[in-house]
Nucleic acid binder design. Structure first.
Lengths: 154, 154
DNA sequence: AACAACTCAATTGTGTGCAATTTAGTTGGT
DNA sequence: ACCAACTAAATTGCACACAATTGAGTTGTT
């Protein structure tokens, strides 16, 4: 047990495993492992799958919009998109109306992959073993945490 | 919205932002950002902080034990420990009773750092903005999810 | 029209994270 | 005692993730 100060007053002892953040981190990695197995046959990583989901849903989007949606910056997205492009799943071209922006669009192969990927969310959901209402609760809580963390690092 | 199959029967439409796993992933990264700010003055990254917490709590441990506690493998821990060693915070030596194992122990500087780090969990907890009971609920849920995911990837 | 301030992507550098392999050391069965 | 099976760490290779910087393009103000 490690001695820890909470606020000004309370002194408690805590161990690594009791940090909520540790479980968030561990859950994220455990999800990643399951995704890796499920996405293996599609040839996608989890972040690549998230990008493709945005494209399947919205069609062509800018890198900027991808970043806002997925909370990722260009340092992550640029090389990731380069790999998706090399895999023949997306195309990239400068936006003619604003040459700073790059439009990312799914290729026909990319669209076709979306049809083969339609049972991925179900498989993950099943592996997570949560009832739908529990999943909703979890999601609500996490979103509040994210908003609060964002606020504190503004 | 992307069409998705859940189980055999139900067909629903879902968008990226509605995947619980997306929020888990996003929360993990948001936590990382706040940790980065808080740990900056201590010169630690979040995973390095987790390792140091185990050492502050238990004293010398093997790499194996670190890995089991933090759910990390040697591929992650070896270079991380090398950096902690280079920073003068830990020492590494072969276990004399089993030359395969490596014992990691905090140096005096490492121990001293632990005293300066005692308000980190409180700062993170506050930034997350959860009531203690909510944090406990979240933790319980996440642990069930982790166990279920582990089970499914066995 | 000029130019400073801003915006968007890409790049660079560092640090995880994990699969797969390698190397060194241990153990159990014969 | 031997050797196969096992175990622990380290290494290799790949893919995020983000801070900081760079370079190209746009906008607003004067």
């Amino acid at each position: 047990m490690v001695t820890v100060k909470f606020g000004i007053i309370r002194i408690v002892k805590i161990s690594v495993e009791n940090l909520v953040c540790f479980d968030v981190h561990a859950a994220s990695r455990a999800l990643d492992t399951v995704y890796r197995r499920v996405l293996r046959e599609l040839g996608l990583t989890y972040p690549q799958y998230l990008v493709m989901m945005v494209l399947w849903e919205r069609g062509p989007v800018t890198v900027k919009e991808l970043g806002l949606t997925l909370r990722l910056d260009s340092g992550t997205l640029s090389p990731l998109l380069k790999r998706l492009e090399a895999a023949g799943l997306v195309g990239r071209e400068r936006d003619v109306s604003d040459e700073r922006s790059v439009l990312v669009r799914p290729t026909p192969e990319g669209v076709e992959l979306g049809e083969r990927a339609c049972d991925v969310p179900g498989q993950i959901f099943e592996a997570a073993g949560l009832a739908p209402s529990e999943a909703l609760d979890l999601q609500r809580t996490l979103r509040r945490v994210i908003a609060s963390l964002d606020e504190s690092s503004r």
